[in-house]
Design a protein around this nucleic acid. Structure first.
Lengths: 144, 144
DNA sequence: CGGCATCCGGGCAGATACTG
DNA sequence: CAGTATCTGCCCGGATGCCG
């Protein structure tokens, strides 16, 4: 999923303009890959939403799905698996009948959510300006 | 502000205020849409990279392309156009021969980049843990 | 209940060729 | 130099159906 992105940067770590953009970062470890990785997860359509939903509650699969309108079962499955793999959430299966699976934020996930909130703040605060800008742009640049 | 955010993103468990922000609704401000919009831009493969590259320098098209290895001409064109439309960067054409077009960050773009940097910091700091988690996960879950 | 397997359509992105 | 145009392949993501 993140392959192409990672390859693009990590494949050519030396020549990237990343050193410049990520001022002061020491060379050696390729931060490009780290950033790509995280960005891929954050930029993912559902990941942040799932993390945010689990922010202060533990939920089981169907509950989670109910809390995130529009997500398909498949996407939820894939998303939680990714998140679990990345150590952002935990998945606990209770040996019961019927089966019960609960998802919970890890501490790592908890730190991420704060950043996400900051981003959301920015989004809400600046969205009007963005929309205005778009309207203005569209007015000047007719159909293209 | 942060509270409305929580509701907007995480959804209100009780009232499903989320549905309104996600589905077609006619109510006033739509935070869900705002967040989605910004997330789409941030999550975009190249947008953040372009913004980051322009952080403290004004660049022309080809320079920009050189600074971002792996980006195709087409994608760069589309990306800068989007960013310009959203008011995150400016595009100035100098009436010369040969033509010279320079891209520069707007103030709005400048505020975004700081958040992006925070995210990058998080990425760099926590990436090892994520990788470890992935390795552990993959060890337990054989090829699926 | 909580998945996984499969099919399928649409859009994104790369490569290439052409222009003001 | 800074794009535009077109063609194409590929992956994302939705819908459906089956299983433990």
């Amino acid at each position: 999923m993140a392959k192409t992105l990672t390859v693009a940067i990590a494949g050519d770590p030396a020549a990237t303009g990343y050193e410049r953009s990520c001022e002061g970062d020491a060379s050696g470890t390729d931060h490009g890959r780290a950033i790509r990785d995280v960005l891929d997860r954050v930029g993912d359509k559902w990941s942040l939403l799932v993390v945010a939903t689990l922010r202060d509650q533990r939920l089981r699969f169907t509950e989670l799905q109910r809390h995130i309108p529009g997500i398909s079962q498949r996407m939820l499955t894939l998303t939680v698996r990714q998140l679990e793999r990345d150590g952002l959430i935990t998945r606990t299966v209770h040996a019961e009948v019927p089966p019960r699976v609960e998802y919970e934020l890890t501490e790592l996930g908890g730190t991420l959510i704060e950043l996400a909130m900051a981003l959301a703040d920015w989004a809400i605060e600046n969205h009007p300006r963005i929309e205005d800008s778009r309207a203005a742009y569209d007015a000047v640049h007719p159909a293209r």
